[in-house]
Nucleic acid binder design. Sequence first.
DNA 1: TCAAGAACTTGACACTGTGTAAAGTTGACA
DNA 2: TGTCAACTTTACACAGTGTCAAGTTCTTGA
Lengths: 196, 196
Amino acid sequence: MSSQNPNARTRILNAAWNLLEKGGSKVRMSDIAKAAGVSRQAVYLHFPSRAELLIETTRHIDEAKAVDDRLAPSRAATNGRERLQLFVEAWAGHIPEIYGVGRALMAMQDNDEEARKAWGDRMQAVRHGCAAAVSALAADGELRSGLTEEKATDLLWTLLSVRNWEQLTLEAGWSQEEYLTALKDLAFRGLTDTAD
Amino acid sequence: MSSQNPNARTRILNAAWNLLEKGGSKVRMSDIAKAAGVSRQAVYLHFPSRAELLIETTRHIDEAKAVDDRLAPSRAATNGRERLQLFVEAWAGHIPEIYGVGRALMAMQDNDEEARKAWGDRMQAVRHGCAAAVSALAADGELRSGLTEEKATDLLWTLLSVRNWEQLTLEAGWSQEEYLTALKDLAFRGLTDTAD
DNA sequence: TCAAGAACTTGACACTGTGTAAAGTTGACA
DNA sequence: TGTCAACTTTACACAGTGTCAAGTTCTTGA
């Protein structure tokens, strides 16, 4: 029973990731332990609670998926419209990667203050990205009249929510491609005066 | 300990409604029983499970709030644009009324098939309303080119989701008024070629 | 080579909330 | 007076999280 290649902590994180990605949603600590080839108690040796484990799993995914690289093109955009488009593309592409854990974390929000805060922080980060795109749009004078930067940010942030992705792809059956074009469209129509 | 005015069943439904509206979200069967002035077991005499109780509570609210009356103006609209506007107003106005129970029901979806189906049914009913509005719009030739009725319906349905209402009002702090105008705006911009 | 310690395992238990079961109480009504 | 329905009280099974304590095994360093 010697430990496999990566250390136990990493194996646990990978196990959690895999199981949550399959989406069974009812992923218990014991399931994760079993998948990691470790006892249930060993999981608590590395993570104090289920919430912490899930939060660490999102960090683990971010690292593996190089989230920052994904956002780089958007930050390098030379005008507001380009920035908005690239930001939407980046985030929309990232959603499916974190959806599994995100779903579990969202489900815990009512019971677990820690989980609530962790997921809230992540969503605030997305909001910052939205604010930057809106700000670039405003700088170009492209922001629709009758819309403050604040409100435009909230609107974009809401359009890009994980729940909306979930509803359109998983419930309504849209392809990722359809989702992406519809959302870019909606963002431009909602935030600017001339659609792209 | 004689029973108060309304019969126990009604008192339980009202208690559930009240508690869920306050939003504590962690509303247990025992909380509801206590608020109804009844033993926890008595609740099970009237409702087989927590899911059933919540579902019955939504029906109870519908009855009390006369949901159908709310939709009537929309159905009586004489053109597509009017129909869309009135539908959005009706549903947007109804969301705060059912949000408390809706939240609890949404939280149960992962664990409880019954709850999943019940909430899903309600959301399908909303989708039908969306479809009717989109259809009226299409009949007037007002539906944006490049958008099928199906896709337009999904889009509207998603815009009008309870989660979006939750995010904009409860999380972003918008007033109901701000939410309503922004959503009407977004719906017209997203579905038609000329904004209202 | 032995001792210490880190990393784990095994097994037991407390806690919460849902749902089930059974026996007792109360009031209305025939 | 007796019976039925509506309720109460008490007890328990079950799932899943998290805690605790006592082993085992493997490594490392004096």
